[in-house]
Design a protein around this nucleic acid. Sequence first.
DNA 1: CTGTATCCTGGATGATACTG
DNA 2: CAGTATCATCCAGGATACAG
Lengths: 123, 123
Amino acid sequence: MSDAALEGFSPYHAQCPTRSLLDRIGDRWTMLVIGRLAAGPVRFSVLSQDIEGISQKMLTQTLRALERDGLATRTVFPEIPPHVEYELTELGRSLLAIVMPVHEWALTHITDVLDARGIYDAR
Amino acid sequence: MSDAALEGFSPYHAQCPTRSLLDRIGDRWTMLVIGRLAAGPVRFSVLSQDIEGISQKMLTQTLRALERDGLATRTVFPEIPPHVEYELTELGRSLLAIVMPVHEWALTHITDVLDARGIYDAR
DNA sequence: CTGTATCCTGGATGATACTG
DNA sequence: CAGTATCATCCAGGATACAG
């Protein structure tokens, strides 16, 4: 990696954009929700079913945060019973795109990490 | 984004490599430590000073985790007083490389996010 | 200098009940 | 169906003291 690439990578403070982004996507649910939204608009109930283990509270909270940050839209269909769909914005899709390499790194190198752990723990 | 790129991106369970990686790098200190290690070997005390706000406990804990996962090495110089240096491994550098785009996304789009928040909060 | 050990607290998350 | 409200829980992380 070039020094230029590291230029400005000094996320030592809370105000650092990278720090705050990692705080946002590093929580337990955000990336899972974004990943599920990747395929297109999805209803609340579908998200609730597909994202195993998420509580209604955390799903709502996560979706509100995505909407607030401009990463997803919330569309209410005036029907009874209520019908709400969530969809990634352009910004949300761009975020997903740059996180995909992280996903791929994880898939590629998980064995390296697990091997390293095995060796470390054996000592 | 292509469907192929999304193939396998279903980190809905704790065992998912992406899930566990995000858990690791999503904590408050790991990426900050990796970023500081990027320039080369660094002593414990230097890390402690440069990474503002980190406690000794968390620095030790973070470094141990990096070492355990094969992302950094720990070298003890048999001197008095003690002298220990930490350095990224090849694996650690590869991780840093793929996180850099996330860093750049944050720098590029932080204003979009802040604008979106302003609009949302004004409602 | 480079750690460990201990205690403690806040906030993130879960569980449950309720509502338009 | 899509939430909100409330209470309970857990643990990451901080503070402090101590050690080799």
